[in-house]
Design a protein around this nucleic acid. Structure first.
Length: 279
DNA sequence: CGGCAGGTGCGGA
DNA sequence: TCCGCACCTGCC
């Protein structure tokens, strides 16, 4: 993780129980970090991993739903986490667009190997992201050599916006929802699908579900209506039903059910799901 | 080897 | 506001 420009190695360890949860964080850095820095870092980790999120009201409502209740039991305590910064998530979102997972990973690997910082700590080695300043000024052709294709333009324009200080992640956290949405949509290469993921994952809007892409439509049609993925339920109908059923928690509810389904299939493959997930 | 993928911007209706 | 289309690249 980078925090305030400093590349850090983090090691998070379980240090509690379900009833009395706790996390130990070991911080590795090239130079000494003062107390104020560590306090701010701790606050940021709590934010990014949603460690202070009170799930009780969600569970209270969700236990009344016959499909959601068993998922809540299996995943009690689970909260979404987005370990990276807004800028880092935007880069990942761009790399995910119009590509299968395997190719997204390949593009991300090439970008990190070229522009990231390899950090070795605790017997491990991971890449930290580059800063917007470090990548601004790189030519589009140089990025295209990494086989990111037309995404090079989006990566550069988003990078320039951050390098020039046009986007303030912390100001956006405090901004009104519609202003936040508009600021994200203003970024070149960032459209409704990416914004939906970002408002949920990065800005923790648990009711953010306004866009369902075709691949999600097929999965939700089967998951919620047991409908043949080849003949999916219209997006408008899906949005309406999920809103009525899960209200202000609707995207968190979908997240719980999606994780439950995905990991169930990881242990014991679910044929229809395997077919719908491209690798 | 054509078609399409965990989208988006753009031009035209 | 909506719709069709092009777009890098890799893989089925």
């Amino acid at each position: 993780m980078r925090w305030r420009g400093v590349p850090l190695g983090l090691k998070l360890q379980d240090a509690g129980s379900v009833d009395a949860p706790g996390v130990d964080v070991h911080v590795y850095a090239a130079s000494d970090l003062d107390a104020a820095y560590l306090t701010a870092l701790s606050d940021e980790i709590v934010y990014r991993y949603n460690l202070a999120l009170d799930l009780a009201p969600f569970y209270e409502q969700g236990r009344g739903d016959p499909q959601l209740a068993p998922a809540i039991d299996r995943w009690c305590g689970m909260r979404p986490a987005s370990p990276g910064s807004l800028y880092e998530y935007l880069i990942v979102a761009i790399v995910l667009q119009n590509a299968v997972i395997r190719r997204s990973i390949q593009m991300m690997q090439a970008l990190l190997e070229t522009y990231g910082t390899l950090l070795a700590f605790d017997g491990q080695a991971f890449y930290a992201f580059w800063t917007p300043q470090e990548l601004s000024g790189v030519t589009e052709d140089a990025l295209r050599e990494l086989k990111v294709g037309y995404r090079a333009g989006s990566i550069l324009r988003v990078t320039e916006a951050f390098a020039e200080g046009q986007v303030d992640e912390f100001a956006l956290r405090a901004a009104p929802r519609e202003l936040r949405r508009a600021a994200l949509l203003d970024l070149y290469g960032i459209g409704p699908a990416s914004v939906g993921y970002i408002l949920f994952d990065v800005f923790h809007q648990w009711d953010e579900l306004n866009h369902i892409s075709p691949w999600e439509q097929r999965i939700y049609s089967k998951l919620f209506f047991d409908r043949d993925p080849a003949d999916p339920v219209p997006v408008e109908q899906l949005l309406q039903v999920l809103d009525e059923r899960f209200g202000v928690w609707k995207m968190l509810a979908v997240h719980y059910l999606w994780e439950d389904l995905f990991w169930s299939s990881a242990r014991d493959p679910i044929p229809w799901l395997q077919e719908l997930i491209r690798r």
